[in-house]
Design a protein around this nucleic acid. Structure first.
Lengths: 184, 184
DNA sequence: CTAGAATCGGAATGACTGTTCCGCTTGGAT
DNA sequence: ATCCAAGCGGAACAGTCATTCCGATTCTAG
Protein backbone atom coordinates (compact mmCIF):
# COMPACT_ATOMS: atom_id res chain seq x y z
CA UNK A 1 0.00 0.00 0.00
CA UNK A 2 1.45 3.30 -1.10
CA UNK A 3 2.25 6.03 1.41
CA UNK A 4 -0.19 8.58 -0.01
CA UNK A 5 -2.96 5.99 -0.04
CA UNK A 6 -2.51 5.33 3.64
CA UNK A 7 -2.48 9.04 4.36
CA UNK A 8 -5.70 9.55 2.42
CA UNK A 9 -7.36 6.65 4.16
CA UNK A 10 -6.72 8.30 7.51
CA UNK A 11 -8.00 11.64 6.24
CA UNK A 12 -11.18 10.07 4.93
CA UNK A 13 -11.90 8.28 8.18
CA UNK A 14 -11.33 11.46 10.14
CA UNK A 15 -13.57 13.55 7.90
CA UNK A 16 -16.24 10.85 7.77
CA UNK A 17 -16.40 10.71 11.52
CA UNK A 18 -16.96 14.47 11.72
CA UNK A 19 -19.61 14.56 9.01
CA UNK A 20 -21.40 11.41 10.11
CA UNK A 21 -21.45 12.65 13.69
CA UNK A 22 -23.19 15.79 12.50
CA UNK A 23 -25.58 14.46 9.86
CA UNK A 24 -25.96 10.79 10.69
CA UNK A 25 -26.64 8.38 7.85
CA UNK A 26 -27.89 11.17 5.61
CA UNK A 27 -24.38 12.54 5.24
CA UNK A 28 -23.28 12.71 1.62
CA UNK A 29 -20.13 11.15 0.24
CA UNK A 30 -19.37 14.34 -1.64
CA UNK A 31 -19.30 16.30 1.57
CA UNK A 32 -17.04 13.80 3.26
CA UNK A 33 -14.71 13.85 0.27
CA UNK A 34 -14.59 17.65 0.22
CA UNK A 35 -13.83 17.88 3.91
CA UNK A 36 -11.14 15.25 3.58
CA UNK A 37 -9.66 17.16 0.65
CA UNK A 38 -9.88 14.22 -1.74
CA UNK A 39 -12.10 13.17 -4.64
CA UNK A 40 -15.05 10.87 -4.11
CA UNK A 41 -13.26 8.22 -6.14
CA UNK A 42 -10.54 8.07 -3.52
CA UNK A 43 -13.06 7.10 -0.88
CA UNK A 44 -14.42 4.32 -3.05
CA UNK A 45 -10.91 2.95 -3.53
CA UNK A 46 -10.80 2.16 0.19
CA UNK A 47 -14.43 1.53 1.02
CA UNK A 48 -16.54 -0.25 -1.55
CA UNK A 49 -19.73 1.39 -0.40
CA UNK A 50 -21.10 4.03 1.91
CA UNK A 51 -22.28 1.36 4.32
CA UNK A 52 -18.78 -0.09 4.43
CA UNK A 53 -17.34 3.26 5.45
CA UNK A 54 -20.04 3.63 8.05
CA UNK A 55 -19.39 0.10 9.27
CA UNK A 56 -15.65 0.80 9.58
CA UNK A 57 -16.26 3.75 11.86
CA UNK A 58 -18.86 1.94 13.92
CA UNK A 59 -16.56 -0.98 14.44
CA UNK A 60 -13.80 1.36 15.56
CA UNK A 61 -16.16 2.98 18.07
CA UNK A 62 -17.35 -0.36 19.32
CA UNK A 63 -13.79 -1.39 20.02
CA UNK A 64 -13.10 1.75 22.03
CA UNK A 65 -16.36 1.26 23.89
CA UNK A 66 -15.49 -2.29 24.80
CA UNK A 67 -12.03 -1.18 25.90
CA UNK A 68 -13.55 1.40 28.22
CA UNK A 69 -15.92 -1.13 29.72
CA UNK A 70 -13.12 -3.59 30.30
CA UNK A 71 -10.92 -0.99 31.87
CA UNK A 72 -13.68 0.03 34.28
CA UNK A 73 -14.42 -3.61 35.05
CA UNK A 74 -11.19 -3.74 37.02
CA UNK A 75 -12.06 -0.76 39.22
CA UNK A 76 -12.22 -1.16 42.98
CA UNK A 77 -15.70 0.27 43.47
CA UNK A 78 -17.90 -1.82 41.21
CA UNK A 79 -20.96 0.33 41.76
CA UNK A 80 -19.21 3.58 40.90
CA UNK A 81 -17.63 1.95 37.85
CA UNK A 82 -21.01 0.83 36.59
CA UNK A 83 -22.66 4.20 36.90
CA UNK A 84 -19.66 6.02 35.51
CA UNK A 85 -19.66 3.82 32.43
CA UNK A 86 -23.33 4.57 31.88
CA UNK A 87 -22.83 8.30 32.28
CA UNK A 88 -19.76 8.46 30.04
CA UNK A 89 -21.45 6.68 27.18
CA UNK A 90 -24.46 8.95 27.32
CA UNK A 91 -22.27 12.02 27.55
CA UNK A 92 -20.40 10.98 24.43
CA UNK A 93 -23.50 10.20 22.47
CA UNK A 94 -24.61 13.82 22.65
CA UNK A 95 -21.93 14.51 20.09
CA UNK A 96 -21.66 11.21 18.29
CA UNK A 97 -24.72 10.20 16.39
CA UNK A 98 -23.14 7.03 15.19
CA UNK A 99 -22.38 5.74 18.62
CA UNK A 100 -26.08 5.65 19.22
CA UNK A 101 -26.71 3.44 16.25
CA UNK A 102 -23.77 1.29 17.19
CA UNK A 103 -25.14 0.83 20.67
CA UNK A 104 -28.62 0.20 19.43
CA UNK A 105 -27.47 -2.43 16.99
CA UNK A 106 -25.27 -3.99 19.63
CA UNK A 107 -28.26 -4.22 21.91
CA UNK A 108 -30.74 -5.47 19.41
CA UNK A 109 -28.84 -7.80 17.18
CA UNK A 110 -25.32 -8.62 18.26
CA UNK A 111 -23.74 -8.09 14.87
CA UNK A 112 -21.24 -10.62 13.66
CA UNK A 113 -17.67 -9.49 14.06
CA UNK A 114 -18.53 -6.92 16.69
CA UNK A 115 -16.21 -6.97 19.66
CA UNK A 116 -17.64 -8.33 22.86
CA UNK A 117 -19.25 -5.17 24.18
CA UNK A 118 -22.13 -7.02 25.65
CA UNK A 119 -19.78 -9.24 27.58
CA UNK A 120 -17.91 -6.28 28.99
CA UNK A 121 -21.07 -4.44 29.96
CA UNK A 122 -22.50 -7.58 31.45
CA UNK A 123 -19.40 -7.97 33.61
CA UNK A 124 -19.81 -4.40 34.87
CA UNK A 125 -23.43 -5.09 35.70
CA UNK A 126 -22.82 -8.35 37.52
CA UNK A 127 -20.02 -6.91 39.60
CA UNK A 128 -22.14 -3.91 40.55
CA UNK A 129 -24.97 -6.19 41.52
CA UNK A 130 -22.68 -8.35 43.62
CA UNK A 131 -21.47 -5.21 45.36
CA UNK A 132 -25.08 -4.39 46.12
CA UNK A 133 -25.01 -1.14 44.16
CA UNK A 134 -27.52 -2.28 41.55
CA UNK A 135 -30.71 -4.21 42.21
CA UNK A 136 -30.52 -7.88 41.37
CA UNK A 137 -33.64 -8.11 39.25
CA UNK A 138 -32.46 -6.15 36.23
CA UNK A 139 -30.82 -7.99 33.37
CA UNK A 140 -28.92 -7.01 30.24
CA UNK A 141 -32.13 -6.48 28.32
CA UNK A 142 -33.41 -3.79 30.66
CA UNK A 143 -29.99 -2.25 31.04
CA UNK A 144 -29.37 -1.96 27.29
CA UNK A 145 -32.88 -0.64 26.81
CA UNK A 146 -32.31 2.15 29.32
CA UNK A 147 -28.82 2.89 28.07
CA UNK A 148 -29.99 3.09 24.50
CA UNK A 149 -32.92 5.25 25.50
CA UNK A 150 -30.68 7.73 27.28
CA UNK A 151 -28.23 7.87 24.39
CA UNK A 152 -30.94 8.39 21.81
CA UNK A 153 -32.59 11.17 23.77
CA UNK A 154 -29.31 12.85 24.65
CA UNK A 155 -28.38 12.96 21.02
CA UNK A 156 -31.81 13.72 19.58
CA UNK A 157 -32.60 16.49 22.03
CA UNK A 158 -29.10 17.76 22.68
CA UNK A 159 -29.16 17.28 26.40
CA UNK A 160 -27.09 19.75 28.36
CA UNK A 161 -24.63 18.38 30.89
CA UNK A 162 -26.95 19.50 33.61
CA UNK A 163 -30.06 17.88 32.21
CA UNK A 164 -28.16 14.69 31.54
CA UNK A 165 -26.97 14.54 35.12
CA UNK A 166 -30.44 15.08 36.52
CA UNK A 167 -32.22 12.69 34.17
CA UNK A 168 -29.64 9.98 34.74
CA UNK A 169 -29.89 10.50 38.48
CA UNK A 170 -33.50 9.41 38.31
CA UNK A 171 -32.67 6.39 36.18
CA UNK A 172 -29.84 5.48 38.53
CA UNK A 173 -32.13 5.59 41.53
CA UNK A 174 -34.43 3.23 39.72
CA UNK A 175 -31.52 0.92 39.04
CA UNK A 176 -30.54 0.87 42.69
CA UNK A 177 -33.63 -0.37 44.47
CA UNK A 178 -36.23 -2.97 43.56
CA UNK A 179 -39.94 -2.22 43.39
CA UNK A 180 -41.68 -1.62 46.70
CA UNK A 181 -44.64 0.63 45.95
CA UNK A 182 -47.45 -0.79 43.85
CA UNK A 183 -46.85 -0.54 40.11
CA UNK A 184 -48.95 1.44 37.67
CA UNK B 1 -64.88 23.29 -0.74
CA UNK B 2 -66.06 20.61 -3.12
CA UNK B 3 -67.23 17.27 -1.77
CA UNK B 4 -64.57 15.21 -3.54
CA UNK B 5 -61.86 17.56 -2.35
CA UNK B 6 -62.86 17.02 1.26
CA UNK B 7 -62.97 13.26 0.74
CA UNK B 8 -59.51 13.26 -0.79
CA UNK B 9 -58.13 15.38 2.01
CA UNK B 10 -59.23 12.77 4.52
CA UNK B 11 -57.77 9.97 2.42
CA UNK B 12 -54.45 11.75 2.15
CA UNK B 13 -54.22 12.35 5.87
CA UNK B 14 -55.04 8.74 6.60
CA UNK B 15 -52.50 7.40 4.12
CA UNK B 16 -49.85 9.86 5.25
CA UNK B 17 -50.25 8.76 8.83
CA UNK B 18 -49.70 5.14 7.87
CA UNK B 19 -46.69 5.80 5.66
CA UNK B 20 -45.08 8.35 7.96
CA UNK B 21 -45.53 6.00 10.91
CA UNK B 22 -43.62 3.34 9.03
CA UNK B 23 -40.89 5.35 7.31
CA UNK B 24 -40.63 8.54 9.33
CA UNK B 25 -39.58 11.71 7.58
CA UNK B 26 -38.00 9.76 4.74
CA UNK B 27 -41.41 8.73 3.45
CA UNK B 28 -42.00 9.79 -0.15
CA UNK B 29 -44.91 11.83 -1.38
CA UNK B 30 -45.39 9.43 -4.28
CA UNK B 31 -45.94 6.56 -1.89
CA UNK B 32 -48.42 8.51 0.18
CA UNK B 33 -50.27 9.52 -2.97
CA UNK B 34 -50.38 5.96 -4.25
CA UNK B 35 -51.66 4.56 -0.98
CA UNK B 36 -54.27 7.29 -0.81
CA UNK B 37 -55.31 6.48 -4.38
CA UNK B 38 -54.75 10.04 -5.62
CA UNK B 39 -52.15 11.85 -7.69
CA UNK B 40 -49.31 13.75 -6.05
CA UNK B 41 -50.78 16.98 -7.34
CA UNK B 42 -53.87 16.38 -5.23
CA UNK B 43 -51.76 16.34 -2.09
CA UNK B 44 -50.13 19.61 -3.02
CA UNK B 45 -53.52 21.21 -3.51
CA UNK B 46 -54.19 20.77 0.19
CA UNK B 47 -50.74 20.94 1.70
CA UNK B 48 -48.28 23.38 0.16
CA UNK B 49 -45.27 21.32 1.15
CA UNK B 50 -44.24 18.03 2.66
CA UNK B 51 -43.45 19.74 5.93
CA UNK B 52 -46.95 21.21 6.01
CA UNK B 53 -48.49 17.76 5.67
CA UNK B 54 -46.20 16.48 8.37
CA UNK B 55 -47.07 19.44 10.55
CA UNK B 56 -50.79 18.82 10.11
CA UNK B 57 -50.48 15.26 11.34
CA UNK B 58 -48.24 16.20 14.23
CA UNK B 59 -50.65 18.87 15.36
CA UNK B 60 -53.49 16.38 15.23
CA UNK B 61 -51.52 13.92 17.36
CA UNK B 62 -50.59 16.62 19.82
CA UNK B 63 -54.20 17.45 20.30
CA UNK B 64 -55.12 13.85 21.01
CA UNK B 65 -52.18 13.60 23.38
CA UNK B 66 -53.24 16.65 25.31
CA UNK B 67 -56.79 15.33 25.47
CA UNK B 68 -55.54 12.08 26.96
CA UNK B 69 -53.49 13.90 29.55
CA UNK B 70 -56.41 16.08 30.52
CA UNK B 71 -58.73 13.15 30.80
CA UNK B 72 -56.33 11.33 33.10
CA UNK B 73 -55.79 14.47 35.14
CA UNK B 74 -59.28 14.03 36.54
CA UNK B 75 -58.65 10.45 37.72
CA UNK B 76 -59.04 9.58 41.38
CA UNK B 77 -55.62 7.99 41.88
CA UNK B 78 -53.17 10.67 40.78
CA UNK B 79 -50.16 8.37 41.02
CA UNK B 80 -51.71 5.66 38.88
CA UNK B 81 -52.86 8.24 36.35
CA UNK B 82 -49.36 9.63 36.03
CA UNK B 83 -47.70 6.29 35.42
CA UNK B 84 -50.42 5.13 33.11
CA UNK B 85 -50.05 8.22 30.97
CA UNK B 86 -46.31 7.61 30.71
CA UNK B 87 -46.78 3.97 29.77
CA UNK B 88 -49.48 4.64 27.21
CA UNK B 89 -47.44 7.23 25.37
CA UNK B 90 -44.44 4.97 25.17
CA UNK B 91 -46.57 2.04 24.06
CA UNK B 92 -48.02 4.11 21.23
CA UNK B 93 -44.67 5.42 20.11
CA UNK B 94 -43.56 1.92 19.24
CA UNK B 95 -45.85 2.15 16.28
CA UNK B 96 -45.97 5.85 15.65
CA UNK B 97 -42.71 7.34 14.65
CA UNK B 98 -44.13 10.80 14.35
CA UNK B 99 -45.38 10.91 17.87
CA UNK B 100 -41.81 10.69 19.00
CA UNK B 101 -40.80 13.73 17.03
CA UNK B 102 -43.88 15.53 18.20
CA UNK B 103 -43.04 14.81 21.79
CA UNK B 104 -39.42 15.71 21.35
CA UNK B 105 -40.25 19.00 19.73
CA UNK B 106 -42.86 19.71 22.36
CA UNK B 107 -40.31 19.06 25.05
CA UNK B 108 -37.44 20.94 23.54
CA UNK B 109 -39.01 23.93 21.90
CA UNK B 110 -42.65 24.46 22.65
CA UNK B 111 -43.69 25.14 19.08
CA UNK B 112 -46.06 27.98 18.43
CA UNK B 113 -49.63 26.88 17.95
CA UNK B 114 -49.09 23.58 19.71
CA UNK B 115 -51.83 22.73 22.13
CA UNK B 116 -50.95 22.89 25.79
CA UNK B 117 -49.47 19.43 26.20
CA UNK B 118 -46.87 20.63 28.61
CA UNK B 119 -49.53 22.15 30.80
CA UNK B 120 -51.52 18.94 30.86
CA UNK B 121 -48.49 16.79 31.60
CA UNK B 122 -47.37 19.22 34.25
CA UNK B 123 -50.75 18.94 35.95
CA UNK B 124 -50.44 15.16 36.00
CA UNK B 125 -46.99 15.44 37.52
CA UNK B 126 -47.95 17.92 40.21
CA UNK B 127 -50.97 15.93 41.28
CA UNK B 128 -48.92 12.73 41.45
CA UNK B 129 -46.33 14.51 43.53
CA UNK B 130 -48.95 15.89 45.88
CA UNK B 131 -50.32 12.38 46.27
CA UNK B 132 -46.84 11.26 47.25
CA UNK B 133 -46.54 8.87 44.31
CA UNK B 134 -43.72 10.75 42.61
CA UNK B 135 -40.68 12.26 44.31
CA UNK B 136 -40.86 16.02 44.73
CA UNK B 137 -37.47 16.87 43.27
CA UNK B 138 -38.16 16.06 39.63
CA UNK B 139 -39.43 18.78 37.33
CA UNK B 140 -40.84 18.95 33.83
CA UNK B 141 -37.36 19.01 32.32
CA UNK B 142 -36.34 15.66 33.78
CA UNK B 143 -39.75 14.15 33.14
CA UNK B 144 -39.84 15.14 29.48
CA UNK B 145 -36.26 13.97 29.07
CA UNK B 146 -37.10 10.53 30.41
CA UNK B 147 -40.37 10.33 28.50
CA UNK B 148 -38.71 11.30 25.27
CA UNK B 149 -35.88 8.84 25.90
CA UNK B 150 -38.29 5.98 26.44
CA UNK B 151 -40.32 6.86 23.34
CA UNK B 152 -37.25 7.15 21.14
CA UNK B 153 -35.82 3.85 22.30
CA UNK B 154 -39.15 2.05 22.11
CA UNK B 155 -39.57 3.16 18.54
CA UNK B 156 -35.96 2.83 17.42
CA UNK B 157 -35.44 -0.61 18.91
CA UNK B 158 -38.97 -1.91 18.59
CA UNK B 159 -39.45 -2.70 22.24
CA UNK B 160 -41.72 -5.63 22.94
CA UNK B 161 -44.54 -5.13 25.41
CA UNK B 162 -42.60 -7.15 27.90
CA UNK B 163 -39.37 -5.22 27.57
CA UNK B 164 -41.24 -1.95 27.74
CA UNK B 165 -42.92 -2.96 30.95
CA UNK B 166 -39.66 -4.01 32.56
CA UNK B 167 -37.64 -1.03 31.42
CA UNK B 168 -40.33 1.41 32.48
CA UNK B 169 -40.60 -0.34 35.84
CA UNK B 170 -37.01 0.67 36.53
CA UNK B 171 -37.62 4.24 35.44
CA UNK B 172 -40.77 4.39 37.53
CA UNK B 173 -38.94 3.22 40.62
CA UNK B 174 -36.46 6.00 40.03
CA UNK B 175 -39.31 8.47 39.76
CA UNK B 176 -40.81 7.33 43.03
CA UNK B 177 -38.03 7.78 45.54
CA UNK B 178 -35.39 10.49 45.94
CA UNK B 179 -31.69 9.72 46.07
CA UNK B 180 -30.45 8.01 49.18
CA UNK B 181 -27.35 6.04 48.19
CA UNK B 182 -24.30 8.01 47.12
CA UNK B 183 -24.34 9.08 43.47
CA UNK B 184 -21.87 8.08 40.80
C1' DC C 1 -78.96 19.50 -18.83
C1' DT C 2 -75.26 22.45 -19.40
C1' DA C 3 -71.60 25.55 -18.64
C1' DG C 4 -67.64 26.66 -16.35
C1' DA C 5 -64.99 26.60 -12.48
C1' DA C 6 -62.83 23.67 -9.11
C1' DT C 7 -60.21 19.72 -8.86
C1' DC C 8 -57.72 15.95 -10.52
C1' DG C 9 -53.76 12.87 -12.27
C1' DG C 10 -49.37 12.13 -13.38
C1' DA C 11 -45.63 13.53 -16.74
C1' DA C 12 -41.99 16.91 -16.55
C1' DT C 13 -38.50 19.63 -13.92
C1' DG C 14 -34.53 20.45 -11.29
C1' DA C 15 -31.86 19.37 -7.49
C1' DC C 16 -30.15 16.08 -5.05
C1' DT C 17 -27.93 11.21 -4.13
C1' DG C 18 -24.44 6.92 -4.32
C1' DT C 19 -21.53 4.89 -7.48
C1' DT C 20 -18.64 4.11 -11.75
C1' DC C 21 -15.22 5.26 -14.96
C1' DC C 22 -11.20 6.87 -17.09
C1' DG C 23 -7.51 10.17 -18.39
C1' DC C 24 -4.03 12.14 -15.60
C1' DT C 25 -0.67 12.24 -11.69
C1' DT C 26 2.74 10.44 -8.69
C1' DG C 27 5.27 7.25 -5.53
C1' DG C 28 9.01 4.44 -5.35
C1' DA C 29 11.63 0.48 -7.13
C1' DT C 30 15.25 0.03 -10.51
C1' DA D 1 16.70 9.55 -14.26
C1' DT D 2 13.25 6.43 -15.91
C1' DC D 3 9.24 3.89 -15.91
C1' DC D 4 4.77 2.08 -14.88
C1' DA D 5 1.42 0.42 -11.94
C1' DA D 6 -1.02 2.17 -8.03
C1' DG D 7 -3.60 5.87 -6.96
C1' DC D 8 -6.02 10.13 -7.86
C1' DG D 9 -9.85 13.63 -9.01
C1' DG D 10 -14.04 14.75 -10.48
C1' DA D 11 -17.16 14.55 -14.61
C1' DA D 12 -20.75 11.45 -15.95
C1' DC D 13 -24.51 8.14 -14.93
C1' DA D 14 -28.60 6.31 -13.05
C1' DG D 15 -31.51 6.61 -9.50
C1' DT D 16 -33.89 9.13 -6.04
C1' DC D 17 -36.81 13.00 -4.32
C1' DA D 18 -40.06 17.20 -3.67
C1' DT D 19 -42.44 20.23 -6.32
C1' DT D 20 -44.70 22.40 -10.55
C1' DC D 21 -47.81 22.54 -14.30
C1' DC D 22 -51.42 21.83 -17.44
C1' DG D 23 -54.74 19.11 -20.21
C1' DA D 24 -58.48 16.08 -18.82
C1' DT D 25 -62.07 15.18 -15.61
C1' DT D 26 -65.73 15.90 -12.35
C1' DC D 27 -68.64 18.45 -9.35
C1' DT D 28 -72.41 21.68 -8.81
C1' DA D 29 -74.99 26.07 -9.48
C1' DG D 30 -78.40 27.68 -12.52
Amino acid sequence: MRADARRNRARVLEAAEVVLARDGLDASMREIATLAGVGVGTIYRQFPTKEALYQAIVTDRQERLAAMAEELAGAADAGAAFFEFFDRIVAHSTVKRILVDALASAGIDAKAGAPDIKGAISALLVRAQEAGAVRADVGMAELLALLSAACLAAQHNNWSDDLRTRALAVMFDGLRRPTSASGA
